[in-house]
Lab assay of single mutants.
Amino acid sequence: MAAGGDHGSPDSYRSPLASRYASPEMCFVFSDRYKFRTWRQLWLWLAEAEQTLGLPITDEQIQEMKSNLENIDFKMAAEEEKRLRHDVMAHVHTFGHCCPKAAGIIHLGATSCYVGDNTDLIILRNALDLLLPKLARVISRLADFAKERASLPTLGFTHFQPAQLTTVGKRCCLWIQDLCMDLQNLKRVRDDLRFRGVKGTTGTQASFLQLFEGDDHKVEQLDKMVTEKAGFKRAFIITGQTYTRKVDIEVLSVLASLGASVHKICTDIRLLANLKEMEEPFEKQQIGSSAMPYKRNPMRSERCCSLARHLMTLVMDPLQTASVQWFERTLDDSANRRICLAEAFLTADTILNTLQNISEGLVVYPKVIERRIRQELPFMATENIIMAMVKAGGSRQDCHEKIRVLSQQAASVVKQEGGDNDLIERIQVDAYFSPIHSQLDHLLDPSSFTGRASQQVQRFLEEEVYPLLKPYESVMKVKAELCL
């Protein structure tokens, strides 16, 4: 049975990233139509530049190519590739079939990587351009969430054990800070992308030097003109047959890092959902379990974690691919890159769409948070109580021993009897502590235990987050809708 299948058929496997999760716009960027249309555009740009620099290419040939950029006979191309065992030459023939007058000058002087690699770089750039505003929107939604809850005390956790208090907004800023680093890295790697350009079979530009009869300047002009037509500021000066596969490492490393950030955020949300302090959106008709109707599973956060793990592992592909590119190139890269580049971007696209949807509907339960604080705060307040007693004339050592005994009794009630923490009640009825009984409410005010959390939130948002989001103001209103 021949390899390949009808990918629109229910009898043929289709990647869930495309069929179930990723956005239509990201799927289109990695589609065959987008790819092969870009090949034709690159052939047109090459012909236009070659004509401008004096090669015998007519206006009629150029116009014929322009008129057929979208006229792609995919069936013919597939048949040609089956016959020739070469995808680029299959599309040269297919393009030439609908451009008979231009057929002889299509791909003039070029090698397969002229269309293959340059198209990949265009796709990487455009895919990054799709991700950047999506990530900015996630940051914006979380920034709104953090600002609104900047002063809401909550129990902090280290080692997932109760620690000092923080605020809900401050905790959210930990998430935002990681995503801001990801946004900066995505922008950097996007701006650092260079075009492969017009380089020939081993990167020496020998074929173009021959076409222009040894004119170095025209060869350099050709490279520059096509690079500018493709919208790049610069091209690699040095290439082998391909652009260095280190570029793929750079791009997928940034995406993998984004995956790590999203995994951490969504894990926190899942843990908070278990504590009943916070939940992701839950639709009115949504079913959490087929057997347990009360369940409210954090399905979206779980999906993000599941896909983020996949995204983090994909960076190993370009690392290994770059390491086995012998001399000017081997074909070890080809099949692998067809999979890992598309999957990385479709996965990143999915987790950003999902995280935006989550961040637009996060639900906080202040009463649950308050109750958990009441359970733990008495123990945390013991040092403040000791200091207040010393100020009232008591002995630190005597007070410490009193607190120690009462704390152990209260802990026994919590752990052995399943009761509430009654340390404060014990202190309130103990005559030894009568000098500070009137101060206990103040000493137990949760806001006095959150330090500068709310001020940190305000400063972080104003100095770091809002300036970073400013270039994306025009796209901030787009909502994230999930079908599944």
Rank of each mutant, 00 (worst) to 15 (best):
E250K: 14
V138H: 12
S323T: 13
H97V: 13
L346W: 12
S454Q: 10
L131I: 05
L255I: 04
T166C: 06
S289E: 15
R309P: 07
M299N: 09
M312G: 07
L165A: 04
F282K: 01
K295L: 03
H107P: 02
A381R: 05
K477P: 07
N421L: 11
A163R: 02
A103T: 07
L444Y: 10
R188C: 15
E25A: 04
C173V: 03
Q409S: 05
Q408P: 08
S289Q: 15
E50R: 02
M76Y: 13
R374W: 09
S207Y: 03
R396H: 05
H107V: 03
F282H: 07
N353T: 02
I123T: 11
K199M: 06
F236E: 04
T330A: 12
E425M: 14
D430P: 09
L362R: 11
S447K: 14
Q286K: 05
Q320T: 00
L406A: 04
F236S: 08
K134R: 14
V405K: 13
V364K: 13
S112M: 12
A103F: 08
F327H: 01
A230G: 05
I72Y: 06
E50W: 00
G109D: 04
D117S: 07
S23I: 14
A308N: 05
N185Y: 01
T119R: 05
E462S: 15
Q286F: 15
T94C: 07
K147Y: 05
L152F: 00
G8I: 01
Y13H: 14
M292P: 09
C173N: 08
H263S: 12
Y294F: 13
N274C: 10
A206C: 07
R309N: 14
Y466F: 08
N118Y: 02
K229Q: 00
S23T: 11
E280K: 05
R404K: 12
L469E: 15
K295Q: 07
C180M: 04
K170Y: 06
R396G: 09
T202P: 04
V465M: 01
N118W: 01
R426W: 15
R196L: 08
Y34N: 06
D117M: 04
K276S: 07
I122S: 07
R303S: 09
F95N: 07
R141W: 10
K199P: 02
Q205N: 02
R459I: 13
L211T: 05
K101S: 02
I105C: 00
L314I: 12
G54C: 12
E473R: 10
Q356G: 00
S407T: 11
V189H: 01
H400R: 09
S407R: 00
R83K: 02
K170G: 01
M316Q: 06
F157Y: 04
R404F: 11
H93T: 05
P318H: 00
F160S: 10
L255H: 14
V413A: 02
S434A: 07
S334G: 11
K134T: 08
I373E: 11
A273E: 06
G4I: 12
C483F: 10
A392R: 06
T382L: 08
S359V: 02
T58F: 07
Q221F: 11
E462R: 05
F232G: 07
S334N: 14
D178L: 02
A3S: 07
L53P: 01
V429R: 10
A344Y: 00
C180A: 01
D178C: 07
G200D: 12
V226W: 08
T450R: 14
V315K: 09
E80M: 01
A431D: 01
K246Y: 04
V368E: 11
R234T: 10
H97K: 03
A150M: 00
T313L: 04
R85L: 02
T166W: 03
A146P: 03
G451H: 03
S31Q: 09
V247W: 11
K479R: 14
L69G: 05
I287G: 08
E277G: 02
Q164L: 06
T166G: 01
K477T: 14
G361R: 02
V198K: 14
D349P: 04
I339P: 09
G214W: 09
D73P: 11
L406D: 12
F145K: 11
Y34S: 06
S253V: 03
V363S: 07
V364G: 13
H263P: 12
P133A: 06
G4R: 08
V219D: 00
V92Y: 13
D445W: 00
S289N: 09
F160I: 07
K75C: 11
A136M: 15
V189G: 06
D178G: 02
E376K: 01
A47E: 12
N384P: 09
M65A: 01
G361Y: 00
E481N: 10
P471F: 01
R171M: 04
I369L: 04
D144M: 07
L252A: 13
K35D: 01
Q221H: 11
I62V: 07
T167R: 04
V413E: 15
Q456S: 13
V478Y: 09
K276N: 04
I265T: 11
A143E: 06
Y472R: 01
K295T: 00
L252S: 13
L209V: 03
Q458P: 14
L311I: 11
L272H: 03
G203K: 15
L484R: 13
T321F: 11
A308R: 05
K35S: 08
G214S: 12
I351C: 07
L186Y: 03
R125S: 11
S334L: 12
R40V: 03
P16K: 00
D191V: 03
G197H: 02
G200P: 02
G259Y: 14
V92S: 05
M316H: 04
A18R: 07
S67Q: 00
L69Q: 00
S448L: 07
A90R: 04
D59I: 02
D420E: 01
I369C: 09
E50F: 05
V368C: 11
P366W: 10
S253T: 13
Y294D: 08
E280D: 09
H159F: 01
M389L: 15
P467Y: 06
P10W: 14
E50T: 13
A90W: 12
L193D: 08
N336T: 07
I176Y: 03
G156N: 11
P318S: 07
V465W: 11
T242A: 12
Q397Y: 14
G419A: 05
M292T: 03
L183A: 06
H437E: 06
G393T: 05
A163L: 04
M26Q: 06
Y114C: 05
T52D: 07
R33M: 10
R137H: 07
